[in-house]
């Protein structure tokens, strides 16, 4: 039996999907919409450019969320960012490395790298060794990621995914090696740890804006616009609900 909550949930999903399709279609001729500046993503673009010029590497780590867990959308956002970073840095002498703490995510990171190089007509750049599983428990994942910061000539670390507060060990290793670090997580304890330790921490839903700010494609921009519209809807509902509660209707 379908419940009212089920109908409401399905309604929100259809509304979001409809908005994404409409915004994507109407925005085709207008080009990339203007979004507010986020300093972290400006710095990331500069770091990618510098890494390409210096012949150093970019490291993208995608967290430890299994694809069967509800936390994996953050890793999917990380994969979209990996795709774009691999395309941008395909002219570099040292292609990027992706690491993760889940087997499924590792295979997807390899697949994403493969697709990115094919899309820029450079399939020969693909090396499955650059999409790595570094550990299967939270701590072994971090312990396996630390040597990448020290040994692989990395000048920029991009951390987008589901982490625990132990991710601060990677940002500290990046800091010690003089590398740039941008970090975003859907986990609140990790966000707190990253705020103190990362050079450019991303708080909250800005994590999902990474592919759009790396100018991925029109679909990502439509997705971010939809997210903004839904956020305003939630704000209106919260304020409306509070006012109705105050006047005694609810």
């Amino acid at each position: 039996m379908i419940t009212i909550l089920g109908v409401l949930g399905l309604g929100v999903v259809f509304l979001a999907a409809g908005l994404m399709i409409i915004l994507r279609m109407t925005g085709k001729d207008r080009g990339q919409p203007a979004f507010r500046k986020i300093a972290a993503f400006d710095d990331l673009k500069k770091s990618i450019g510098l890494a390409v010029e210096n012949g150093t590497r970019i490291h993208i780590t995608l967290g430890k969320a299994s694809l069967a867990q509800p936390f994996n959308p953050s890793a999917l956002a990380g994969l979209a960012a990996l795709d774009r970073i691999a395309q941008i840095s395909s002219i570099s002498d040292r292609p990027p490395i992706a690491s993760s703490g889940d087997g499924g995510l590792t295979l997807l990171s390899q697949d994403t790298l493969h697709a990115a190089y094919r899309s820029v007509h450079a399939p020969e750049l693909y090396d499955p060794g650059r999409g790595r599983l570094t550990g299967i428990t939270p701590m072994s994942y971090i312990a396996g990621t630390l040597p990448i910061a020290a040994d692989e000539d990395v000048s920029a670390h991009v951390m987008i995914g589901n982490f625990g507060p132990e991710i601060a060990l990677v940002t500290e290793a990046a800091d010690n090696a003089g590398a740039f670090s941008l970090a975003a997580s859907d986990s609140l304890p990790a966000q707190a740890a990253l705020f103190a330790s990362a050079q450019q921490p991303i708080i909250g839903e800005e994590l999902f804006a990474a592919p759009t700010y790396l100018e991925a494609n029109r679909g990502h921009a439509a997705s971010l616009q939809t997210q903004d519209i839904l956020r305003w809807g939630v704000i209106a509902i919260i304020i409306g609900g509070a006012l109705l509660k105050m006047v005694g209707v609810l």
Partner: peptide, 27 residues
């Protein structure tokens, strides 16, 4: 507040896969 934002972001990210905009499996 942060979790509501993350939920909205998760929704749109999931929909990108459902609509075929993101295809991390397409290598």
């Amino acid at each position: 507040g942060i979790l509501i934002g993350i939920a909205l972001g998760s929704l749109t990210t999931g929909l990108r896969v459902l609509l075929g905009t993101d295809r991390p499996y397409s290598g």
